[in-house]
C-alpha cells in the first residue's frame, strides 16, 4: 500500500461511526492510511465491518463502544488511545441526534437530550482530546454542524439551535487552541442522502430537493472527503472555519 496516503499512520477518533456519514468518514480515513478508532454505541455492532475495513486498507480500524454522553467512558477511551498510540491526531465529532418539530411541538426532554448529545458531549470530547493534542502541539478537530445551524430552518428549531451552538463553539475552540497548534473546524452538511434523512425526506420535506442548487442530495462520501481535507495536512493553515458541503443549497 502506498505510503503517500493523506492520513498515513495518523490516529483518528470518529464518533457515531455505525452508519451514515460517520461510517463514510471512518472508511475514507482508513483508505488514506489512518489508524481509526471508530465509535459506536452498541457493543459488537461494527466489529465485522471494522475488520473488513482494516484488512482492505492495510490499517487498523478499532471499534470503541461508548455513548458520547458517558463522560467517564469517553475519558477511559481517550486514555486507551493515549496508552496504545501515545498520541491523537484527529477527532471527528460526528455523533448526534436529530429531530423534526415545529416550535410549538418541541418537547423539553427531547430538547435537553439533543443539547446533551450534540453540544455538551462534543465540548467534553474537545476538552479531553485537546489535552492529548496539546502535548504534541498538533491536532485537528472537526465538528459536524449542519446547514440549518448556519441558516436556520422552519420545523427544526431545536436541532438548528444545537447545530448553531456547534458553529460558535468551533470558532471559540479554534481561537483558544490555536497557540497549541490545534486546528478546529466544522463542516455544515446540507441534505445528505443517508438512510436517516431519506426516511424523513419523503414524509416531510419532498419539496426541499428544489432548494439544492446542484439538484440532488449529497452523498455521505462527499462529507467524508471534506473531513479528509480538514483532517489532513492539506488544510494546515485553516482553522476556525465552517465549511458548507451542501451542493449550493438555499434554505
Amino acid at each position: 500500500m502506498a505510503n503517500s496516503r493523506l492520513l498515513d499512520k495518523k490516529v483518528c477518533l470518529i464518533t457515531g461511526s455505525a452508519r451514515g456519514i460517520g461510517k463514510a468518514i471512518a472508511s475514507r480515513f482508513a483508505e488514506e492510511g489512518a489508524i481509526v478508532y471508530a465509535n459506536a454505541r452498541i457493543a459488537g455492532s461494527i466489529d465485522d465491518w471494522a475488520k473488513e475495513c482494516s484488512d482492505k486498507n492495510e490499517t487498523q480500524v478499532i471499534p470503541v463502544y461508548f455513548d458520547v454522553t458517558d463522560y467517564v467512558t469517553v475519558k477511559q477511551v481517550i486514555m486507551q488511545i493515549n496508552r496504545e498510540q501515545q498520541h491523537l491526531d484527529v477527532l471527528v465529532n460526528n455523533a448526534g441526534v436529530v429531530s423534526y418539530e415545529l416550535l410549538g411541538m418541541i418537547q423539553p426532554d427531547n430538547l435537553r437530550n439533543m443539547f446533551e448529545v450534540n453540544v455538551v458531549a462534543m465540548i467534553q470530547l474537545i476538552q479531553l482530546a485537546s489535552r492529548l493534542m496539546s502535548r504534541q502541539k498538533r491536532g485537528s478537530i472537526i465538528n459536524i454542524s449542519s446547514i440549518v445551524g448556519v441558516n436556520g430552518v422552519k420545523g427544526q428549531l431545536a436541532y438548528s439551535a444545537t447545530k448553531g451552538a456547534v458553529v460558535s463553539l468551533t470558532k471559540s475552540a479554534a481561537k483558544e487552541l490555536a497557540p497549541q497548534n490545534i486546528r478546529v473546524n466544522a463542516i455544515a452538511p446540507g441534505m445528505i442522502g443517508t438512510e436517516r434523512l431519506s426516511a424523513v425526506l419523503e414524509k416531510n420535506f419532498s419539496e426541499r430537493i428544489s432548494d439544492i442548487g446542484l439538484g440532488r442530495l449529497g452523498k455521505p462520501e462527499e462529507i467524508a472527503n471534506a473531513c479528509l481535507f480538514l483532517g489532513s495536512d492539506l488544510s494546515e493553515y485553516i482553522s476556525g472555519q465552517i465549511l458548507g458541503v451542501d451542493g449550493c443549497t438555499v434554505l
Binding site: 475519558k75 486514555m79 496508552r83 476538552q127 479531553l128 489535552r131 502535548r135 497557540p179
Partner: peptide, 21 residues
Amino acid sequence: SVGHMGLVASMEESFGIMMDP
C-alpha cells in the same frame, strides 16, 4: 490561566492520568 493548562498537560503526561475538570 494559559500556564495553568500547560501545567495540567505536563502533570497528566508525567503521571499518565487525565484530570477531571
